[in-house]
Write a protein that binds this DNA or RNA. Structure first.
Length: 217
DNA sequence: CTCCCGATAT
DNA sequence: ATATCAGGAG
């Protein structure tokens, strides 16, 4: 049961889902990663790859005290930084990427975080998902973040049949009204962590009910 | 497609 | 033991 932009029932079902999400979770652009500025959000988002945001917030609490400027990350001893972020997993890559991203930002961007997708993804460790988090959260640019929850649940809801995150992003751009692009990720993460679990979705207690074609599966 | 990788829940 | 977690790069 795939979404069809020319089908009134599809549009109605989409609107019902968006309305239910808005009423349940609100329309505020909340962020689950603790940060005080754009750079800290970038670091936290790099760390969040294949790691819970809860764990990231534990790590960054001390990390952002020890490295309180971009310059300190740029000059960090890589072995020390690896230990500081080890609990996030993939720590060799992440430590190197965070340090090199800081260096590149200071050299090429005067220490400012760019808003352009190409410029953001040119930074080491920053892919499309991380770049869109920054664009949406820091610059308020309509952008769809396709993470593991959006990938899984957008498929369940019949909003995409794709598996490639970029194709999913383009499908969702057609399905979702632009004022819900940023909200979609926030709402779907909240839903995915509380009801629509990856392992064992709690369909019986899901407020989307029959709006979801995958109910009970 | 594979590798990177620790912490937690089931 | 295994699946999963705000993915990215080679």
């Amino acid at each position: 049961m795939l979404f069809d932009v020319n089908d009134k029932k599809s549009l109605k079902r989409r609107d019902n889902i968006l309305k239910a999400l808005d009423e349940k979770y609100g329309k505020e652009y909340i962020c689950y990663l603790n940060h005080k500025n754009a750079w800290e959000l970038l670091v936290a988002t790099i760390l969040s790859a294949q790691c819970t945001d809860k764990r990231v917030n534990i790590i960054t609490k001390d990390l952002f005290k020890k490295y309180d400027t971009m310059e300190k990350f740029a000059g960090a001893d890589i072995s020390d930084l690896e230990i500081d972020i080890k609990q996030a997993g993939f720590y060799h890559n992440k430590a190197k990427n965070i340090k090199n991203a800081a260096i590149m930002l200071l050299e090429k961007y005067n220490g400012e975080i760019p808003s352009d997708l190409k410029e953001l993804t040119s930074l080491p460790g920053v892919g499309r998902k991380t770049a869109n988090v920054i664009r949406g959260n820091i610059f308020n640019e309509p952008s769809i973040v396709v993470d593991t929850h959006v990938k899984r649940i957008s498929g369940k809801l019949g909003f995409t049949g794709e598996k490639d995150p970029v194709k999913i992003e383009y499908d969702l751009m057609k399905v979702l009204p632009k004022d819900h692009w940023i909200l979609w990720n926030i709402h779907i993460i909240t839903l995915g962590r509380s009801i629509c679990f990856a392992r064992n979705p709690d369909c019986d207690n899901c407020f989307l009910g029959n709006f979801c074609p995958s109910k009970g599966k």
